[in-house]
């Protein structure tokens, strides 16, 4: 089990070392700074779409929604409209709470022995850390738009100002930077310290966590410790986004570490568990209304059965039956 942790951690350290070596060779800089992001982004976009199309090709012959509450039945039995929806509106509500609030993580339960009693009790840590992590990541990704587009749209500037509203230090510390660092560390500790989690965690579980932690740490180091010329970084980023790539001078090695890790995340995305980003929308346990009993669902690949009537049977064997003297309905 420890090997899985070492392999995942070693892979991230390997990427960091490769990026540092690459950054020290002038000829390799455009390769890491420009070519790698292009390739990684293309893999991400095409891979993501192909994966979703592939999922959409799989038939779902029967409705399998997770029943998180009482299904619609008799008027005097209280129906759980969102956790067991039987209408499109209910499904939309369910998907909204699933995607935006992580409702199924909120329902997480633990079972413990407490003074001789077996207790089932709600536990919210996973939900809290996951929610904090995902929203921080979203805000950080939107904030990064300031480096990719010119002129910078107003909502990006507003988000930037709100995120750095406490004006602690120069450059200001962003709240989301603190949250993402805490949440990813918490999620990692959860996997490392809970024996059951450690038992079932694979390299594919540790690797994205170490990778994202690496991205966060390299970004923070770039902002606060090993500072780089941010105008040069923006020239590079807008160069990429406008298909006029340039490789400006004066960008420190830490930037190449950051971009190599982000590119790895993008390229790895379609082949990993991170595809839950698209998968949550494709999940038949969430996106289907529970109409199993109230509507007729035909098996999509059902062919009409071939009948063989007695008339046809008689037509087939008439001569032989006549010969044997069997009674016939028609002569």
């Amino acid at each position: 089990m420890i090997t899985r942790i070492i392999v995942a951690f070693g892979a991230v350290v390997g990427i960091v070392i490769a990026a540092l070596i690459g950054a020290s060779v002038p000829g390799l800089r455009p390769l890491i700074g420009v070519a790698l992001p292009y390739v990684a982004f293309a893999i991400f976009l095409v891979g993501f779409i192909l994966k979703v199309v592939n999922w959409a090709k799989s038939p779902v012959p029967f409705r399998i929604p997770t029943t998180g509450g009482q299904e619609f039945s008799l008027p005097w039995i209280k129906w759980s409209k969102i956790d067991n929806p039987s209408t499109t509106g209910g499904v939309i509500m369910r998907m909204f709470f699933e995607v935006c609030c992580f409702r199924s993580l909120f329902r997480n339960m633990r079972t413990d022995l407490r003074s001789g009693w077996l207790i089932h009790h709600p536990t919210k840590w996973l939900w809290l850390l996951a929610l904090g992590f995902h929203y921080s990541f979203l805000i950080i990704a939107i904030r990064h738009l300031r480096l990719f587009v010119q002129p910078v749209p107003g909502f990006v500037e507003t988000l930037d100002a709100v995120d750095g509203m406490f004006q602690i230090g120069i450059p200001p510390i962003y709240l989301t930077d603190i949250f993402i660092l805490l949440c990813v560390t918490g999620l990692l500790i959860r996997r490392l310290c809970l024996p059951k989690m450690r038992f079932m965690s694979l390299v594919a579980d540790y690797f994205p966590l170490f990778l994202i932690l690496g991205i966060v740490i390299s970004g923070l180091l770039m902002r606060f410790v090993y500072r780089v010329d941010i105008t040069a970084v923006k020239a590079l980023a807008t160069g990429i986004a406008s298909f006029h790539p340039v490789m400006p001078e004066g960008i420190g090695a830490i930037f190449f570490v950051h971009i190599a890790l982000v590119s790895t995340l993008l390229a790895y995305f379609p082949f990993s568990k991170l595809m839950h980003m698209g998968g949550v929308f494709m999940s038949p346990t969430r996106n289907l209304a529970n109409t199993n009993r109230m509507a007729y669902h035909e098996n999509p690949w059902r062919k009409p059965p071939k009948f063989h009537s007695y008339e046809e049977y008689e037509d087939m064997y008439r001569d032989y039956m006549k010969e044997a003297g069997l009674p016939l309905e028609r002569e």
Partner: peptide, 22 residues
């Protein structure tokens, strides 16, 4: 998928081929 591609291609669409030099 179109919404997905639109969101992730936003910088490419917004910059429409004109880079912002330093």
């Amino acid at each position: 998928l179109l919404i997905f591609a639109g969101i992730f291609l936003f910088p490419f669409i917004y910059d429409h081929g004109s880079p912002a030099p330093k």
